[in-house]
Simulated scan of single mutants.
Amino acid sequence: MRLPAWLAQHLAALRALLVLTVVFGLAYPLLMVAVARIPGLAGHADGSLVDKGGKTVGSALIGQSFTDADGNPLKQYFQSRPSAAGDGYDPTSTSASNLGPENVVDTLPDPSVKDDEGKQGLLTQVCARSKAVGELEGVDGSRPYCTPGGVGAVLAVYHRDGATGPVTRAVSLNEACPATPFVTTWQGVTVECAKFGEDYSGGVVTPVRGNAPDKPVVPADAVTASGSGLDPQISVAYAHLQAARVAAARGMSVPDVGKLIDKYTTGRTLGFIGEPGVNVLQLNLALDAGHPVRG
């Protein structure tokens, strides 16, 4: 007996559903699991976990911080690049800061709110990080468009005719009163500190370059977070910048630290994509194994 067309169609759909479920819901996942257990691939499938003394201490694919309980850098360790993922290197909250190059004005702290720190723009974040790295490594941490105090050197400049004409007023937007502005005058007008809650939208936002070197000593990856916030590597330049500090903390010579940096430096992907990088976790573990800090 011939089945009705509608019933035949439903039975065909059911057979297709069963076949696809078996193939793609069971067979294919099991095949991928089996492939992932092949020697040489298992470690990658498990997350490239790194062990120390039988204890998992991290992943070769995810960066982490090397700081004390107060968030201060531990001098005996190489420091990773900044991270905007959660509280830092959180794989469940991988993200960038979403701040762009035009984000140069900070949100000032409210003096009426206890412990309010305001919100830094991208420029001030870069300036503050560069200053901190410079102090930690004993080098010049200055950058263009940054004040000596480590905030964005940005003025709101008011002109007589709106955007043109003589300057009538200038305000240092990222330096809250009673701070002393990074420049005393601008085109003959005394520069003011910024006051919380005051509207400065009528001024022309004007970044001021200053006299910092064109090529800062502190590399860019030391002051900016990656797109994922999880980068396990730093640039070779940033690693060598930290070599003297780590060597002093561990009683090593700088050349010996440099050899370890070279050992844990990987080249460009496929030989031409990106730049060489240094895996911070693996480098720090090698230092602990071969040159432990004496108490």
Rank of each mutant, 00 (worst) to 15 (best):
S59P: 14
V293L: 12
A220Y: 01
N279H: 10
P181L: 02
F196W: 14
V133A: 11
T180W: 03
Q9H: 10
K114V: 09
P166A: 15
N174K: 11
V139K: 05
G251K: 07
S228L: 11
A289E: 15
T94Y: 14
D221Y: 01
P213I: 07
P109T: 10
A34F: 10
I38M: 12
E192S: 05
E192G: 04
A243M: 01
P292S: 04
R160N: 09
T92N: 12
Y145N: 14
L136K: 07
D116M: 09
L3Q: 13
G100Q: 07
V191M: 02
T266M: 08
V167Q: 01
L3I: 06
V223F: 01
V236L: 14
M1T: 06
A132G: 04
V139Y: 02
P144W: 01
Y264T: 05
V278I: 15
R160C: 01
A84G: 11
G271S: 09
R143W: 06
A243N: 07
A84P: 04
P219K: 08
Q79K: 01
Q64G: 14
R250L: 10
W186L: 01
Q120V: 13
G71L: 06
Q187A: 10
P213F: 07
G197Y: 04
V293C: 04
Y264F: 14
F182I: 00
Q120D: 15
D262Q: 15
V183T: 05
G63L: 11
D87G: 12
L41M: 11
N279Q: 04
S48H: 06
A194T: 06
V205R: 13
D106C: 04
P232K: 13
H240N: 08
L26R: 05
T185I: 00
G25H: 12
V189P: 06
E175N: 00
L14I: 10
A248R: 04
V35D: 11
T67W: 00
K195L: 07
L18Y: 12
P144K: 05
V280W: 02
G54S: 09
L230Y: 03
V22L: 15
A289G: 00
P207S: 12
